[in-house]
Write a protein that binds this DNA or RNA. Structure first.
Lengths: 231, 231
DNA sequence: TCATAAGATGACTTTGAGTTATTTTCCGAA
DNA sequence: TTCGGAAAATAACTCAAAGTCATCTTATGA
């Protein structure tokens, strides 16, 4: 009797449908201007039903953010697991991250709103922990690469890999936020240059001065190669 | 007949009283959980009166943020105008910024909420521009110092001063946000080390390698000096 | 065919932002 | 001193939207 299993599958699918509808509306109209009734209508359900699947608007929203996190994680893990030389790998990962954010600006907006926000507080602990766990995963991924770089002598020994990862992450999100939210502080067309400069600053700050231990090929090979980051 | 002038003064004072009440409550209970009725009660006024002085809760909130911006600006400008050697000056400014945020965490919270948020959108253009102008001032202040550093040969020539300023700013706020909002990603006691590492990374990334042009005294003099940044 | 439980509904409650008709306070002139 | 009117303040109101719940519908297994 696999009825129960099918039931569960259908339940998950419905949940997913609501999530999709919510994502679309959130991206389209922003968090505040999207009502739960809107979402229900978009998913062709009544409001009450939405609340059968998500405990609150905030939880629904958090789930949307989480969804995107997971996609990004897949993309970055691929790069991290590839066998490029360390320095190129760092470039590639940072570049991919920037690219991801720039090509999904609405989505990025949502994530940032979550990160800096009132939403986080009124969230079931379980959901918040879930998100935090995924953030940690991404950071550990970065930390791993940095650690590898230290072992190979590319990066300074006194760098804390996890902290370095944190710093890079927050720097990029901070800047992207600025660009994408589009205050008049940065012109859109300077995006490329700004992000490049930030990544460059990070690399120079993190790298060993003398490039010791005969591993300089990685360094010179990648110098000047532009990381992809579609404008 | 100076009645009109006095009227205006009293009006401004009342405005200030409301602002004070709002700041207290916002810091205390956060933006979302503070109602306009709360604010009115705290200022010993009725809600309607609050709306005589501020067009919306958001505008009121933005004004609170702006207020703090101005205070910070005073503090940083003092440092920027002092005659330390450039490198020490940068350390001091960054340190003071960090200090300011760490010692007013609730306040910092508010600022971040504004920066990353839904609030900004529903804001009278005039208010938004005002805030942005002040942000720009702070950035130009930073850019000025960097520019000076470039002239003196301390910083790399290919650094864009304004961008460097942007990068430093966003890096620090991003990290502070993380620490102060207190996810489990960073332990509170690591704050010092994290911020130090971030500033260090920035300095190393921005500095000239060879320290040319006979201005090395500034460099060695300041090396290892811990910037103040009360925990 | 029927009993039951899971799923879905929409009318209802509640909360809080913003409005407005009304009242109070203040001031200058008659 | 009093009166008219303008500025300031009030609180009762509207309105929108989140969240709840009593009720209905549908599927399932006996």
């Amino acid at each position: 009797m696999s009825t129960a299993a099918r039931r569960e599958r259908e339940r998950q699918r419905r949940r997913q449908e609501i999530l999709e509808a919510a994502r679309g509306l959130f991206c389209d109209k922003g968090y505040a201007s999207t009502t739960v009734d809107d979402i229900a209508a978009a998913a062709e359900l009544s409001k009450g039903t939405v609340y059968l699947y998500f405990r609150s608007k905030d939880e629904l929203y958090a789930s949307v953010v989480l969804e995107g996190f997971k996609k990004l994680e897949v993309r970055l893990r691929e790069l991290a697991d590839s066998d490029m030389p360390v320095q190129g790998k760092v470039d590639a990962i940072l570049g991919a991250f920037v690219d991801h954010c720039v090509s999904n600006p609405d989505y990025f907006r949502l994530t940032q709103l979550f990160a800096g926000g009132s939403v986080r507080d009124n969230l079931p602990k379980e959901v918040r922990d879930d998100i935090e766990a995924h953030a940690r995963d991404l950071l550990l991924l970065g930390a791993g690469v940095v650690e590898r770089g230290i072992e190979e002598g590319v990066f300074r020994r006194d760098l804390d890999p996890f902290m370095a990862s944190l710093i890079a992450w927050r720097t990029l999100t901070g800047l992207l936020d600025l660009v994408i939210f589009g205050g008049q502080l940065v012109r859109r067309k300077d995006t490329q240059r700004l992000m490049r400069q930030a990544m460059d600053l990070f690399m120079r700050g993190a790298m060993n001065r003398g490039v010791p231990r005969g591993e300089r090929e990685a360094l010179s090979r990648e110098r000047g190669k532009s990381p992809k980051a579609g404008d």
